[in-house]
């Protein structure tokens, strides 16, 4: 692996969603009430870097902020705090032309293949709109270009006059991929891109991702809650819990020896053929509300190893092995007060 600058790098990125007070609540506050703005810390101080050619798996329970992080990377949400850089240059320092190039270079493949395609556009338009708009291809060349993109994702171009609802789920997923590929991206953020598909179709689409990776030298951020899919695809895996990264390591290291108690609990519950007769010991409780996260380590209310220090102090990410970081006090002097 080269030591070149990472393709995408996030430094201490946070994304908060604030529900502002309405006029009535503000008025009530004036008269002595204590309404507060509701703030969701969807992503809380995350560092992430992805080098060219890598597939990074981003794993976590629903509601842990992995989709929000993906959208920050794809440029759909602006981070509330922290900086994002593309090829070593922070987005805030970019000229508008550079920013546009960076926007196009990072594309997103969405979870729901139906709602991610405009229902009133034909496939030719869905795939061909952006390249024509950005001048990658002229209007006369649009048809041939769309054909090429559709063939690249394994769709017959004769279907390009159809609307999205006339396709099956797997075909729609392919249209979504063709749309992203049409602007020549170098980085794809796949947000649960196969979760809505049947298992057999999932395998086809995953194989397509891998084929495209080789053909087009793509880099992926692969967001999923499906550990077996992530294990199959990823070079490196990042585990998130309630807006924070709790552990990151190469896929092989992580699946061999998870360090963080949350990662251990997650991996222990991956169903495999060998564990057919095993009793599963699910984590107790639900993921806490990001509106009101627990203090200290977010995981301590559900953690079997938690001690007094866990509810007081936020654990930092520490290297436990080369290239393997984990945020747990157990690695750093124990959990005692």
């Amino acid at each position: 692996m080269s030591v070149s600058t990472p393709l995408v790098e996030l430094r201490n990125v946070s994304k908060r969603f604030v529900k502002p007070l309405d006029a009535a609540a503000r008025l009530a506050n004036l008269m002595g009430a204590h309404h507060r703005e509701q703030v969701v810390h969807a992503v809380d101080g995350v560092d992430l870097s992805v080098v060219e050619g890598e597939v990074v798996g981003l794993v976590g329970e629903s509601g842990c902020g992995k989709s929000t992080l993906g959208r920050v990377v794809a440029g759909i949400h602006a981070p509330s705090e922290g900086s994002m850089s593309w090829q070593g240059k922070t987005t805030s320092a970019m000229t508008s032309a550079e920013r546009k190039a960076a926007t196009l270079a990072v594309q997103m493949i969405f979870q729901d293949p139906m709602s991610s395609l405009n229902p009133r556009m034909r496939v030719a338009e869905i795939v061909g709109e952006a390249p024509v708009f950005h001048g990658l291809v002229d209007k006369a060349g649009q048809d041939a270009y769309v054909d090429m993109m559709l063939e690249r994702v394994g769709l017959d171009p004769v279907y390009k006059r159809r609307f999205p609802h006339q396709f099956s789920g797997g075909q729609r997923a392919r249209i979504g991929i063709a749309r992203a590929l049409a602007v020549n991206p170098r980085f794809l953020v796949c947000d649960e891109s196969v979760a809505a598909l049947d298992v057999s179709i999932q395998a086809q689409v995953l194989n397509l991702f891998m084929k495209l990776r080789e053909e087009l030298r793509l880099t992926y951020l692969f967001i999923s809650h499906d550990l077996s899919v992530v294990r199959h695809l990823s070079d490196r895996v990042v585990i998130m819990y309630l807006g924070r990264v709790v552990e990151a390591a190469s896929a092989a290291d992580l699946f061999r020896g998870p360090n963080h108690p949350y990662a251990q609990a997650l991996l222990a519950n991956v169903p495999t053929l060998a564990s057919r007769h095993k009793r599963f010991a699910p984590l107790k409780g639900e993921i806490p509300s990001p509106l009101n996260p627990p203090p200290g380590c977010h995981f301590h209310p559900r953690c079997p190893m938690a001690g007094p220090r866990c509810s007081a102090e936020r654990p930092a990410l520490r290297e436990v092995a080369p290239g393997h970081v984990s945020a747990c006090h157990l690695n750093d002097g124990g959990v005692g007060g």
Binding site: R71, Q107, M108, S116, A130, F133, G176, R179, A180
Partner: peptide, 26 residues
């Protein structure tokens, strides 16, 4: 709030285009 609008934004289309070509027909 649908994903196709996010996709259009991520494809770098202009605001006017997103509003009048994507949202309005729907």
């Amino acid at each position: 709030r649908k994903e196709y609008v996010e996709a259009a934004q991520s494809l770098g289309l202009s605001h006017a285009r997103v509003v009048f070509r994507h949202i309005m027909p729907n």
